[in-house]
Every structure is written in C-alpha cells, then in structure tokens.
Amino acid sequence: MNRVVSSLVLSVTMLLSSAAFAATTSYRSAMSGPSEQPPNDSPGASIATVVFDDAAMTMLFSVPFMNLVAGSTVAHLHCCTPESLIGTAPPAIGFDDFPVGVQTGLYERLYSLADPNTYEPAFLAAHGGTVDAARAFLLQGINSNQSYLNIHSTEYPAGEIRGFLVALANPVPEPSSWLMLSVGLAGIGFCAAKRRAA
C-alpha cells in the first residue's frame, strides 16, 4: 500500500510541475489620445486585452475601439521604451489585418510567438534574427511596462490613441489542472484511509 501512496504523491508532484499547470497572463491597455506621443485631444478610446499563454507560446489580442476622429489605418504592439510607462518604441508586432477606414470596431487575433512572421522584420533583425531572442525581449518589455498598443488614423498618422500594457494578475493555473490536482489529492486521502483501516 505504501507504494500506491508513494506513486500518487509522485504523480501529484509531477502534476504541479508539469505543463498541465501552464499559466496565462492577462494584460490591459487603456488607450486614449492624451496617452499618445505627442498627446492629442482625440475622443477615441479602447480598453484592449492581451492574453499570453506560456505553454502554447501564443498571444491573444482583443482590441475594441471607438470614437476615432478619422478612419483607422493600422495598429501595432510597440516595444520597448527606455523607461516604464513613458517614451516611444518601434513596432514589434504589426496588425496587418487590422480593420481600416473605420472609427469604431473590434480586432481579435491569436498570434504565435514561435512564428518569425509574427514579428516586424526590423524588430526581429534587431534581436539577432532569432524568434527566441525577440520573444524574450518582448516579454521582458511587456512585463516591465515598456510596451504599448496604438491605433493610427488618417487624421493622426503617427498614432491617434495608445496605452501601455499592464499585467492584471499573477498567472493562474488552468481549471482542468485544479481538477486533476483535486482528484490526485482525493486518491492519496483514500489510500491513506484504507491503509489505516487495514
């Protein structure tokens, strides 16, 4: 019976350190005209959400926007400014399929951070041309609040609204991981109770 309990303890320990506990980290970007560089008085706004999955190496962008003063032209994720929450940086990921010619809309897309085509060519080249180096630099910049989203328009070709990415919370394990952990712990408890009864 000791072997069964030991096996279950080992299984739960492996579960805790496995990819089943892959975490997602969510970020928000509150974009506005006054946050642009240089600031402007656009009434445009967005509360964008970015979700990074560290197991799949993906980044999901959800960018609703409204009230731009002119039609949208393009949008980017920029990285990395010299200081947190201030300054400018080159585009790291360009949203080539961003809706254009509209003042209100929604952009949603899942990007693979393992794909070199995700990154702007200049950003990739600036980091040795390797995906691993570009991804590491980008994630470090995002987590240091040195990365921002912005949307450009015909009225503001340099950018009408922008906002820095800020993490919402610590990574949280997937619900399925909690379920597997609970089953494992219940199994250990059952085996221990059965052992005491024997």
Rank of each mutant, 00 (worst) to 15 (best):
M1Y: 12
R3F: 10
V4C: 03
V4N: 10
V5G: 03
V5F: 07
S7Q: 13
L8R: 14
L10Q: 07
V12R: 12
M14N: 11
M14I: 03
S17M: 08
A19M: 10
A20V: 13
A20G: 10
F21I: 01
F21W: 14
A23H: 12
T24L: 02
T25N: 13
T25W: 14
S26C: 07
Y27C: 03
A30Q: 06
A30G: 02
M31C: 12
M31D: 14
S32L: 04
S32I: 01
G33H: 02
P34A: 05
S35Y: 09
E36K: 06
P38K: 10
P39S: 14
P43C: 11
P43K: 01
G44N: 12
G44D: 09
A45Q: 15
A45N: 15
S46F: 06
I47V: 15
V51Q: 15
F52V: 15
F52P: 01
D53M: 08
M57G: 08
T58N: 09
M59E: 10
L60H: 14
L60D: 15
P64Y: 06
F65Y: 14
F65M: 12
V69C: 00
V69N: 13
A70V: 02
G71T: 04
S72P: 01
S72D: 03
T73G: 01
T73N: 01
H76S: 04
H78W: 05
C80V: 11
E83G: 03
S84A: 15
L85A: 14
I86G: 12
G87W: 01
G87A: 04
T88M: 03
T88H: 08
P90D: 11
P91T: 05
A92E: 05
I93N: 05
F95S: 11
D97K: 00
D97F: 00
F98T: 05
T104K: 06
L106H: 01
Y107H: 05
R109P: 10
R109D: 10
R109H: 15
L110A: 08
L110F: 07
Y111Q: 02
D115C: 05
D115S: 06
P116S: 08
N117R: 13
N117Y: 15
Y119K: 00
P121S: 13
A122Q: 14
F123A: 09
A125E: 07
A126F: 04
A126G: 06
H127Q: 06
G128T: 07
G128W: 05
G128S: 07
G129E: 11
A134S: 13
A134E: 07
A134N: 10
R135Q: 11
A136F: 06
A136G: 03
L139R: 00
L139V: 06
G141I: 02
I142Y: 08
I142T: 04
I142K: 08
S144F: 00
S147G: 12
S147D: 07
S153Q: 06
Y156S: 02
A158F: 13
A158W: 09
G159L: 10
E160I: 03
R162M: 07
R162I: 03
G163S: 08
L165R: 12
V166I: 15
V166T: 14
L168I: 11
A169C: 07
N170C: 04
P171F: 01
P171C: 07
P171D: 04
E174W: 11
S176A: 15
W178P: 00
L179C: 10
L179I: 14
L179W: 14
S182K: 03
G184M: 00
L185I: 09
G187P: 03
I188E: 00
I188W: 00
I188P: 00
F190E: 02
A192M: 10
R195F: 15
